[in-house]
Amino acid sequence: MADRERLICLSSALAEGGEGFRFPLRTAWGEETGFVVRHQGKVFGYVNRCAHVPVELDWQKGQFFDQSGKYLICSVHGALFSPTTGGCLAGPCRGGRLPALEVVERDGEVFLVESD
């Protein structure tokens, strides 16, 4: 099976601890939204679905970080997630994890790596 890359956004669309970028995504659960954010200089991608209940995290389109810009936060119940691992650090889903997506950043662009 071959992997292929799908362009998500330009690197410049992602500021450190700032607004994330949402994109359509097909998963085993159907049509969903994925997102990418920049944290500690790297890009991380996840399925936009809380580990506690199946709701999108962002409280406004693309707003995934808490006020400190250090943690991803669920808009529904305030669970905090590590931007680097997707692990739930606080809240009702403690021990849960956001579904990670394989993303790469190259030549000023961010790509989703999809497997057949």
Rank of each mutant, 00 (worst) to 15 (best):
L98N: 09
L89A: 10
R49F: 04
G108V: 08
E56R: 12
Q60M: 11
P54A: 12
L80D: 08
L57M: 08
L57F: 11
R38W: 05
R49P: 00
D66R: 05
S12M: 11
T27I: 01
G41F: 05
W59F: 10
G91K: 07
E19R: 15
R6V: 15
V113S: 11
Q63G: 06
F81V: 00
I8E: 00
R94Q: 14
N48H: 05
G34T: 03
A15E: 14
E114K: 09
M1L: 07
F81A: 00
T85F: 02
W59G: 09
V47T: 05
G45V: 00
H39R: 09
R26D: 11
R38H: 13
E105V: 05
G62T: 02
G78M: 09
L101W: 08
E105I: 04
D107F: 05
A15N: 11
R22L: 13
R26G: 03
C50H: 01
S82R: 04
A15T: 13
G34W: 06
G91I: 06
Q40G: 10
G41N: 10
N48W: 01
L89I: 15
D66A: 03
N48M: 05
E56L: 05
D58S: 11
G30K: 10
S68W: 11
A100N: 13
P24F: 07
G95K: 10
R94W: 12
G17K: 09
V113W: 04
P54C: 11
H39V: 06
V76I: 09
C50G: 01
G95T: 12
L25K: 00
Q60A: 10
P92N: 09
D116R: 14
I73F: 02
V43M: 07
G86Q: 04
F23C: 01
L57R: 02
E105M: 12
